[in-house]
């Protein structure tokens, strides 16, 4: 049957990138329960729009899936949550890139990353953890390569400051 063929092709193209999808979702939502919901939602969405992916050239299945995961995580927070995460997701690039540190918590790099505004957090995850090219990151985040470049640089400088505090 055509449909089960289609599902098999989708699974072969997309499921190898489930770890990457979960990692991005985990860092964007900052908890595993939400991350799993986001990944499941994103995969169902991806299946529905699989025909649009095959039409595009030069996009890797991984970057394509990560784009959907990212957008799902952002809209999921807008749609389902009214807590503090929402406001952070609404932050623009011109606001503070970093939330205030909890003075009692021991500073770690992981914690510093979690406190970065999501648009900075995601470029670190996509570049350092998943090794995407600037161009791929620009596709995933929907911003120009120049913006990726400057966000990545600013994010690294923030993290380096945290690293110095850690020592």
């Amino acid at each position: 049957m055509l449909e089960s063929n289609e599902l098999a092709r989708f699974e072969a193209a997309v499921l190898p990138h489930l770890d990457a999808a979960y990692t991005l979702a985990r860092y964007l939502t900052r908890n595993d329960h939400d991350a799993e919901d986001v990944v499941q939602d994103a995969c169902v969405r991806a299946l529905k729009y699989f025909n649009t992916f095959r039409g595009e050239q030069g996009t890797s299945a991984r970057a394509w899936l990560l784009t959907i995961v990212r957008n799902t995580a952002y809209s999921w927070h807008k749609g389902h949550r009214t807590d503090a995460l929402t406001t952070e997701f609404d932050e623009t690039e011109h606001s503070h890139a970093v939330a205030d540190a909890d003075p009692d918590a021991k500073e770690t790099l992981g914690r510093a990353l979690e406190r970065l505004a999501p648009e900075f957090r995601e470029v670190i995850v996509l570049r350092e953890l998943q090794g995407l090219s600037y161009k791929e990151i620009s596709d995933v985040a929907g911003v120009p390569v120049g913006t990726v470049m400057s966000r990545l640089s600013r994010a690294r400088t923030h993290l380096q400051r945290a690293l110095r505090k850690e020592d």
Binding site: E11, L18, V39, Q40, K48, G110, L129
Partner: peptide
Amino acid sequence: EVPAFQASDVLRGRVRAALKNTAR
């Protein structure tokens, strides 16, 4: 210090079930 995560088997199962349900 900053881990990449792995999708659990539970999540993989959930995703497969949801995909099958969407496709069928």
